[in-house]
Simulated assay, not measured.
Amino acid sequence: MTEYEKDIYKAIFYRRTATSTMIQEMEYIKNNAKIVEEMGVPTVPMCLFVSNGSGGTGFDEETWRQIPKKIHNKG
């Protein structure tokens, strides 16, 4: 990726973040997580994205792969 392409990517990323909708989601995330914890994971189809852990996600690839399995087993 060229420096020019990186600059374009950053411009698009920053233009599309911190929108009022995203900020509202962040404000409700802890409360929503508490509701799910109290009520249990719903038994509905889900599409979960799994990372390979690169790029500083905070989890390695194996941890990412275990998250959907843990969610499935709680449902």
Rank of each mutant, 00 (worst) to 15 (best):
M1Q: 12
M1H: 11
T2H: 10
Y4P: 06
Y4N: 13
Y4R: 15
K6D: 10
K6C: 11
I8R: 05
I8A: 07
Y9L: 13
Y9A: 14
A11R: 11
I12Y: 07
I12K: 04
F13K: 15
R15N: 15
R15E: 15
T19S: 13
T19F: 05
T21S: 06
T21R: 03
T21I: 04
I23H: 01
I23P: 00
E25I: 01
E25P: 08
M26L: 11
E27C: 05
Y28Q: 00
N31D: 09
N31Q: 11
N32W: 00
K34V: 02
I35P: 00
M39A: 08
G40A: 01
G40D: 01
G40I: 00
V41S: 00
V44C: 07
V44G: 03
C47P: 00
L48W: 14
L48A: 15
V50M: 13
V50W: 07
G53M: 05
S54A: 13
S54H: 12
G55S: 05
G56T: 08
G56C: 07
T57E: 10
T57Q: 10
G58C: 06
E61Y: 03
E62K: 05
T63S: 12
T63G: 00
W64C: 06
R65W: 02
Q66S: 12
Q66K: 14
P68D: 06
P68H: 02
P68R: 00
H72C: 12
N73C: 07
K74W: 04
